[in-house]
Amino acid sequence: MQASPSLLTLFGLAVIVVGVGARINIMLVIILSALTTCLCSGASLVAAIATIGHYFTANRYMTVLWSILPLVGLLEHAGLPQASRTFIGRLGVNTPGHVLWLYFLLRQITAALGLTSLGGQAQMVRPLLAPMVEEAALRMKKQPLPDELSQKLKAEAAAVDNVAVFFGEDIFLAVASILLMETVLENAGLRISPWHLSFWAIPSALMAAAVTYIRMKRLDRAIGRRNRP
């Protein structure tokens, strides 16, 4: 039995899974996945490259966001992480869980207001949030952090940002996901107001906040147990 072209295009998803699992450069993985999807759909190599080039130039305004990366690098070189460590010390927030929980609330509220660009992995988590969390852990442990714990705290900082914006942005009426859901439901014969979709995103956001609060409490307790002799 011969597989249909529509099923063969799923190999592009397999390329992403394997590439991410093997920790290959993510940009290379995405390009290979796009090429695989085009080729499996029956397109030639030239047509596949042309398709990728077309959508890249059609959405070239997205590359403007890359301009922030050199700015973040310069700020880090100028001592932004050290300044954030000093700032969190002055606030008197003494545990990593408290720092992450406060950031989660701020990130979710701003995302619910449509201000999703105020946070992010490159512009907020790496240069500001992660150093703050590590500084809080240092004050809590009163000794140098093991590399395993340091990496875990960085991962928690990245996860908090992702979860907060994921569940918070759907509360904003004009976000793309709300408009997409409205369109899909309308095509299926279900007419639902965007206000209705936004309203029912609130329980999910509150549940995400509650789960994150519990996780941050468990994180602080786990770090506290490591301090015991």
Rank of each mutant, 00 (worst) to 15 (best):
residue 44 S to K: 05
residue 105 L to E: 01
residue 193 S to T: 06
residue 165 V to Q: 11
residue 119 G to M: 02
residue 88 I to L: 04
residue 31 I to C: 10
residue 2 Q to L: 11
residue 200 W to C: 03
residue 122 A to Y: 11
residue 7 L to I: 06
residue 150 S to T: 13
residue 189 G to P: 01
residue 54 H to L: 15
residue 85 R to K: 13
residue 103 Y to V: 08
residue 105 L to K: 02
residue 219 L to R: 01
residue 25 N to M: 08
residue 19 G to H: 01
residue 26 I to D: 02
residue 64 V to L: 15
residue 43 A to I: 04
residue 212 T to R: 03
residue 178 I to A: 02
residue 64 V to Q: 15
residue 58 A to K: 14
residue 183 T to C: 01
residue 190 L to R: 05
residue 144 P to C: 05
residue 83 A to N: 07
residue 82 Q to E: 15
residue 166 F to H: 12
residue 199 F to V: 08
residue 86 T to L: 15
residue 104 F to K: 02
residue 80 L to E: 05
residue 73 G to D: 11
residue 97 G to F: 05
residue 228 R to C: 05
residue 56 F to W: 14
residue 69 L to I: 14
residue 27 M to A: 13
residue 52 I to L: 14
residue 45 L to K: 12
residue 6 S to E: 13
residue 164 A to I: 07
residue 106 L to H: 09
residue 83 A to R: 13
residue 135 E to I: 05
residue 206 L to G: 00
residue 199 F to L: 12
residue 56 F to C: 14
residue 150 S to Y: 10
residue 108 Q to D: 02
residue 4 S to I: 03
residue 220 D to R: 01
residue 192 I to F: 00
residue 203 P to S: 01
residue 79 G to M: 04
residue 189 G to I: 01
residue 51 T to Y: 11
residue 96 P to Q: 02
residue 218 R to F: 00
residue 97 G to V: 03
residue 172 F to P: 00
residue 125 V to L: 02
residue 141 K to H: 15
residue 104 F to C: 06
residue 144 P to Q: 03
residue 45 L to E: 11
residue 3 A to C: 10
residue 54 H to F: 15
residue 218 R to Q: 11
residue 212 T to Y: 03
residue 94 N to H: 15
residue 29 V to Q: 06
residue 163 V to S: 11
residue 32 L to Y: 11
residue 52 I to F: 10
residue 78 A to W: 09
residue 86 T to G: 15
residue 187 N to T: 05
residue 74 L to Y: 08
residue 43 A to S: 10
residue 14 A to M: 10
residue 38 C to W: 09
residue 83 A to V: 08
residue 124 M to T: 13
residue 221 R to M: 09
residue 67 S to Y: 12
residue 175 V to H: 06
residue 145 L to A: 09
residue 158 A to E: 10
residue 106 L to I: 10
residue 2 Q to S: 12
residue 195 W to C: 08
residue 125 V to G: 00
residue 137 A to P: 03
residue 207 M to D: 01
residue 171 I to M: 08
residue 39 L to P: 03
residue 78 A to T: 05
residue 81 P to H: 05
residue 202 I to L: 06
residue 122 A to G: 07
residue 70 P to G: 00
residue 82 Q to M: 12
residue 98 H to D: 12
residue 42 G to V: 09
residue 35 L to Q: 04
